[in-house]
Design a protein around this nucleic acid. Structure first.
Length: 321
DNA sequence: CACTTGACCTGTCCGC
DNA sequence: TGCGGACAGGTCAAGT
């Protein structure tokens, strides 16, 4: 369930690793990837150099020197994992050294770049180490220096497409998606104007609408609504201006905090919680049902809003009358 | 047009 | 122990 902060964390990791890499081979076994263009894969990917890694909303854009870009949506369970030459040697030496392998099996510690790239990706309940490719691997890019980029996606909701770079802004998703909530020009006035386009909807449904603003998913909708003390079912028209201003700040704070954590706690995450997932360690309400509200101590409950599992403190977030 | 619900997937967890 | 079914959630298509 990568949302904006997770995708941004992955982008930061990939932006350090990929530019300059030259694609030597491409493997994929999944018709949703490159659905119409096996010939284009060869023509516009093989030998192409990676120029940059960008993000728009929850979409990653890997720009190639061929004039094409790989456009990737991880949806819920997608992962992008870079394995460099150094990583492979490190693993080989571990296998040759029984003592270190024993250590490894008790407490798997991937190298930091891999851990960072895993952050926010799917498989939140699984161990984060394993041989690649595995059965969820959909695409593998081989680079000329021997390193590889794996695109894994357990549930096949995600996609990776090869699109001419100049046409990327023209695809349906890019044309419809709303403003980036962390951009400087995303003012509180713009936020409120966009939100009010859907007066009758539940406020949570509006936050999740990618055409209203980009990048917010279930986790950060719940977290920001809790922070602003707004019940997620409240129709937009019944949320006061004051609360909307608070929500604007809360949303940006929560997104920024999460990006900050994503960039700094990756090793800790894998060490301590390889089987739990990290982006929840600093959540206040998301998946905390049954636990006390960090603000008032009342029990957090899980309800259903806009067809989504929704976590609230019923004392802090009153049902609208 | 505004808004809600279901489909796409597969792995996991819960109850019987 | 196995089995069925509910559930997880981002986005789009189809529904009301």
């Amino acid at each position: 369930m990568p949302e904006l902060p997770e995708v941004e964390t992955i982008r930061i990791g990939l932006a350090k690793l990929l530019p300059g890499q030259v694609i030597a081979d491409v493997w994929h076994d999944w018709q949703k990837s490159f659905p119409n263009a096996p010939a284009d894969v060869a023509r516009f990917m093989l030998g192409a150099k990676i120029e940059s890694v960008r993000r728009r909303a929850k979409v990653l854009i890997i720009e190639l020197s061929s004039g094409y870009s790989l456009v990737i949506h991880l949806k819920m369970t997608g992962q992008l994992i870079f394995v460099g030459e150094a990583d492979k040697k490190d693993r080989e030496s571990r296998i040759e050294n029984p003592e270190s392998e024993k250590l490894n099996s008790q407490f798997p510690i991937p190298n930091s770049s891999e851990a960072e790239l895993r952050f926010g990706g799917g498989h939140p309940t699984k161990s984060l180490i394993g041989e690649l490719p595995d059965k969820s691997t959909r695409v593998v890019l081989d680079f000329t220096d021997g390193s590889k980029l794996f695109f894994n996606d357990q549930r096949k909701f995600g996609w990776m497409r090869l699109i001419p770079t100049l046409e990327v802004p023209e695809i349906d998703f890019m044309k419809k998606v709303g403003p980036e909530p962390l951009e400087d020009d995303f003012t509180v006035d713009k936020f409120i104007t966009n939100i009010l386009r859907r007066r009758q909807s539940a406020i949570k449904a509006v936050l999740l609408d990618q055409t209203v603003l980009a990048g917010v998913g279930n986790i950060y909708a719940d977290e920001s609504l809790w922070a602003a003390k707004i019940h997620p079912s409240t129709p937009v028209s019944k949320v006061s201006k004051t609360k909307l201003v608070t929500l604007y700040s809360a949303l940006r704070d929560v997104l920024n905090l999460s990006i900050e954590k994503g960039g700094s706690t990756d090793k800790n995450y894998v060490n301590a919680e390889g089987k739990k997932g990290s982006y929840l360690t600093f959540a206040q309400v998301f998946r905390k049902e049954g636990q006390p509200c960090p603000r008032c101590g009342h029990e957090i409950v899980k309800i259903r809003v806009a067809g989504r599992g929704t976590h609230i403190c019923p004392k802090c977030q009153k049902v609208p009358k």
